[in-house]
Design a protein around this nucleic acid. Sequence first.
RNA 1: CGGAGUUUAGCGCAGCUUGGUAGCGCGCCUGCCUUGGGAGCAGGAGGUCACAGGUUCGAAUCCUGUAACUCCGACCA
Length: 482
Amino acid sequence: MAKDKEFVKDITLQSEDFSRWYIDVITKADLMDYAPVRGCIVFKPDGYELWEACQRELDRRFKATGHRNAYFPLLIPESFFQKEKEHVEGFNPELPWVTQVGDDALEERLAVRPTSETIFGYMYSQWIQSYRDLPVLINQWANVVRWEKRTLPFLRTSEFLWQEGHTAHATQEEAMQETEKMLDVYTDFVENELAIPVIKGRKTPSEKFPGAVATYSIEAMMKDGKALQAGTSHFLGDNFARSFDIKFLDKDNERKFAFTTSWGMTTRIIGALIMVHGDDRGLQLPPRIAPTQVMVIPIGPAKARERVLTAAQEILATLASTGIRIKMDDRDDVSPGWKFNEYELRGIPIRLEVGPRDLDQSQAILVRRDTSEKIPVPLANLKEIVQSLLDDIQSSMLANARAFQRDHSKTVHSVAELLQVVRSEHGFALAGWCGDDACEAHIKTETGATSRNIPFDPPEHVSTCVVCNQEANHTVWFARAY
RNA sequence: CGGAGUUUAGCGCAGCUUGGUAGCGCGCCUGCCUUGGGAGCAGGAGGUCACAGGUUCGAAUCCUGUAACUCCGACCA
């Protein structure tokens, strides 16, 4: 352990102070910087690249499920919010308003969007006439603003980036299917690309989106045992259709309200990536999402430099031609050791070392970020080995995260036990719940944990409410949450 | 939004109690030398001490206010 500490001197140990570790890592890995406006950050290139990678993979999935991208305005008339009561009450405390242009007051205040259900609703009411116009399947990539009281880089910032899908359907069933389908899309993305295992489920009424009939979420466990809602999908019923008059003439010649959905994933997912996989040396990026998968580090004294560089260039070109995202750091003003630490901090999955000694044996050294294992590989086999190593790292990261989640999850039968699990053992607690808001609120007050969701597929069903001991109508995951 | 803490060079910090010419380590620049886990030597650059007021002959230091950040609570993706 003392030796590990030698690797990177500038990062607080996770075990010492997880919050400080997190701030240290995102800062030293150069992912972001604080902006001059409260709660706002700059996504620096290395951080933004992670978002771009997420965008690429999500967008591919949205298109494959029939969605198209569009862009709706940043500013939303105040009157739009008034149309949906729960919605306005839910968001009002954190809305920034544009009230004036130049020296003149606006006739109607404009909100900087916190989400776009209202403006989508309004436009959909204009666009939809007939059942033949349905479904409407639109996604937008955008920034939104929510003036949060307490901010944390990536996880909760005043302005954040996200995608929001908004769809309209002829029937309730179809809208429900869409809601579930997109939750599955998120799950597929988060588990297979980000190697983060998630729990799929439905939010309790107190945790649902303002204006939704039902909210579904995927919840992930961070290394400090806290939960992070990684994505949400909402079944809005005909609530917004009624508020915004989204009606269509059906086959039976009757005017009916459409059923709508919305679903979103945000830049907070970058925080999840960091807090699920990161360790005391820094970031650890799953190969599939890593903007750079392999970093080549040429090594050797000046006399061998040309020979090593030529060989390294060749390796770089060969691997790049197979689609591996690979870069080389051939700076000669920093030592190899410095580079080793640097790219471990930045989470690059594989380091490829080449030096004169390797070239004499026609080999290179591969070093895994996840296990630190050093693997000599004949140059002739590099392509195949690197590719299979990337796959192996990906699946082993998911397996590790899954094991961690499992080991920190426990079924509880009393509030005291729940408290123990979420606060002392730093994990998730599965508990029965009668369905009463008061019991849920009691847990929050007593333990600081909130209901995360009612899992579709719980490891077991609990028959009595953890608070009142009445019959449990639901089995719920509770955890402290970001 | 409440409670606590922090703010001095790019980063990490000392100096403040007891006011008197701005310091250290790392990083940065130049040169030499080096390269298989954050090398070495020599020389050098870099600061309206968070911001705004006040006290004082004189303020990084004392007083008042403001802001940002961190942690803890209430609200949220």
